[in-house]
C-alpha cells in the first residue's frame, strides 16, 4: 500500500485541501452575494416582469453572456491586473477568488433567473392582489417560492467552482488542482494525481448530496 503511495506528502495534501476549501468557500459566498441580486434584476427587468426595461435587461444580459463565453483559463490570465488591484496579489487563495467569482457569478445569475421564471405567475399576481408592495412580492413571495431552484442552482455553481479552483492552480492559486498539475502531471507522480482527483471527487459528491438534502428540506411542492 505504502509503496503505491510513495510520493504522497500527506501534510502537503492536507494544506492543499484546505486551500481548495478556502477558495471554494470564499468564491461561493461572493458569487451568491453578487450573483443572486444580478439574477433577480435580470429576471425583474425581463419582458412582462415587474421592472421590465428592455435597455437595462439587454445590457445586463450581454454582460453576463460575454463573461460566460470567455473560457475560464483565459479569464484567469486577463483578470490578473484587476486581481492585483483588488486583493494585492494574483497568487494564492486570495488571488484566485476574484477570477473565480467573475467566472461563477454570471453563471449563477443565469440559473437564478431561470429558477425565478419557474415561479407560478398566479402566486405573484395573488400577492399583488393582497396589497403587497413590489419589494414585499420579491422578498416575501418570489424568492421563497424559487428557493428550491435557487439552492439547486447554488449546488451546480459550487460544483462548477470546484473544477474552476483546479484550473486556478495553473496560475499559482494553490489547492488540490495545483498539486495535481505540479506533481501528478508535470512530475509523473501518478499517485499524487489519483489522490487529489479522489479528494476532488469526494468534495463534488459531498456538495451534491448536501445540495439535494437542502432542496428536499426547503421544497414543499
Amino acid at each position: 500500500m505504502n509503496a503505491l503511495l510513495v510520493n504522497i506528502d500527506w501534510a502537503e495534501i492536507g494544506r492543499a485541501t484546505l486551500d481548495t476549501l478556502a477558495m471554494l468557500g470564499g468564491a461561493m459566498a461572493l458569487t451568491v452575494v453578487l450573483g443572486l441580486p444580478l439574477g433577480v434584476i435580470l429576471f425583474l427587468t425581463g419582458p412582462g416582469q415587474m421592472l421590465r426595461n428592455r435597455v437595462a435587461n439587454g445590457a445586463l444580459s450581454l454582460a453576463v453572456n460575454i463573461l460566460r463565453s470567455v473560457p475560464f483559463v483565459i479569464l484567469l490570465i486577463v483578470m490578473i491586473p484587476l486581481t492585483v488591484a483588488l486583493v494585492g496579489t494574483s497568487l494564492g487563495v486570495a488571488g484566485a477568488i476574484p477570477p473565480l467569482v467573475v467566472g461563477a457569478a454570471p453563471f449563477f445569475a443565469r440559473l437564478v433567473e431561470t429558477a425565478l421564471r419557474e415561479v407560478d405567475k398566479g402566486v405573484i399576481e395573488a400577492s399583488f392582489a393582497m396589497g403587497a408592495r413590489r419589494r414585499q412580492v420579491v422578498l416575501g413571495a418570489l424568492l421563497p417560492e424559487a428557493m428550491p431552484g435557487i439552492i439547486a442552482a447554488a449546488t451546480v455553481t459550487a460544483i462548477a467552482l470546484v473544477s474552476y479552483t483546479a484550473m486556478a492552480g495553473v496560475v499559482g492559486a494553490g489547492g488540490l488542482g495545483d498539486l495535481a498539475i505540479r506533481f501528478g502531471y508535470q512530475r509523473f507522480q501518478t499517485d499524487v494525481m489519483v489522490v487529489t482527483v479522489v479528494l476532488l471527487l469526494i468534495l463534488v459528491q459531498a456538495l451534491q448530496m448536501i445540495g439535494e438534502a437542502v432542496v428536499r428540506k426547503v421544497s414543499h411542492r
Binding site: 402566486v123 400577492s127 396589497g131 421563497p144 428557493m147 411542492r221
Partner: peptide, 24 residues
C-alpha cells in the same frame, strides 16, 4: 380575491398563507 388555481404560496404553510396578507 380568490382564483381558479388557488395561487397559494407553496413555500408557506396553510397558516403562513393566511397570515401573509396580514404581515404585508
Amino acid at each position: 380575491m380568490i382564483f381558479q388555481h388557488f395561487n397559494l404560496l407553496s413555500s408557506k404553510t396553510v397558516a403562513g398563507n393566511v397570515a401573509f396578507p396580514l404581515k404585508l
